[in-house]
Write a protein that binds this DNA or RNA. Sequence first.
DNA 1: CCTACCGATCGGTAGG
DNA 2: CCTACCGATCGGTAGG
Lengths: 208, 208
Amino acid sequence: METRREQIYNTAGTLFSRRGYAATSVRDIAGELDLQGGSLYAHIKSKEDVLWAIISRAAEQFLAAARPLAASDAAATVRLRGMIHAHIAVVTGRIEQATVFLQDWRYLSSPRREQIGALRDEYEGLYRTTIAAGVARGEFAPTDPKLAATMVLSAINGVHAWYRPAGPLSPDEIAERFADMLLNGLKVEGRRSKVEDPTSGRGGADGD
Amino acid sequence: METRREQIYNTAGTLFSRRGYAATSVRDIAGELDLQGGSLYAHIKSKEDVLWAIISRAAEQFLAAARPLAASDAAATVRLRGMIHAHIAVVTGRIEQATVFLQDWRYLSSPRREQIGALRDEYEGLYRTTIAAGVARGEFAPTDPKLAATMVLSAINGVHAWYRPAGPLSPDEIAERFADMLLNGLKVEGRRSKVEDPTSGRGGADGD
DNA sequence: CCTACCGATCGGTAGG
DNA sequence: CCTACCGATCGGTAGG
């Protein structure tokens, strides 16, 4: 039993994720539901309220999934792996809402945009803190936690752009491979000290 | 000596990168140049032509920077590092155009959108091929080159969203750290042989 | 490059 | 939830 308003949110999520908020009209949304444009306003207050409903819920889902993992007393490696799995689960589980959250939050007007910005900062902080703890414990190599958190989040946010439920990898399989690559790196030798690469004839130790 | 048309492209790049293509009007662009809206059409044919000029140039810059690096006979590790540096140099050197390229290409209409899609595929292919070569040579751990290329590109594309020229890190410093993290991973131990990883409950994992 | 304008569409409302 | 409408704005053009 889905209320009309929830139907509007879902339809808008689909259209916003495809065309973007600015390029989607209220008549587009109404048309998908076989309504006249003005009829939407019996259920919603404004187009931006619909965007807000989608984005604020998505933000809370990301945070609700990550907070307990970040706060657990497991090893940082385990926590970070769990957070990557949780993030990709949210992205793939509600891909349209997640896409709108990631791509259209700048269209919120002023008090709301800053609210979402604060939630994004909090979320990134969970990653930063977890990585910093891993560095402090010697689990992670010395690295800038802020830069590392930004990179990890960029990598896993990208999933929304290409994931298809019919694809060959499940969300957990994607998360496992992403976590492997992010934690262990691509290179066989891994990191320990910055020794030179023996397969390189051109002096790889000298960063460019 | 910048032609009026180039001024229009630059101004549009700034506005499109900030507000998005769909939410930027031709009158917004004209206003920044102290022109009337209709006056733009003495220099351009359509709003979409402006978008196309920005995006097609950006796509060519990314490709022109990466092609010779991908084709070199250096070690895959060296090639991939070089490609990451080149990519971040393009993103940071023309950040507005790069942002428009990354965020607004879906607003191109049909023949052009597919053209850009093909260039994006070619570009991703350079990363995929380089990573696959690294795996074949034993430089990289066994991994799905397609997934790895997608992840690396997502990570380095994210730079456009937060890079500021006044920030503490130069583009090359950012690239060096990103390459370190992507190639060597976050963990101190690094990867050696996947089958012996005690933190993974799922063995196997080759074969796709 | 401006003035003046075109038809179309926008988000939203009144009154039923 | 519909009909009918509001003022504003959209991309673009004619004619100078």
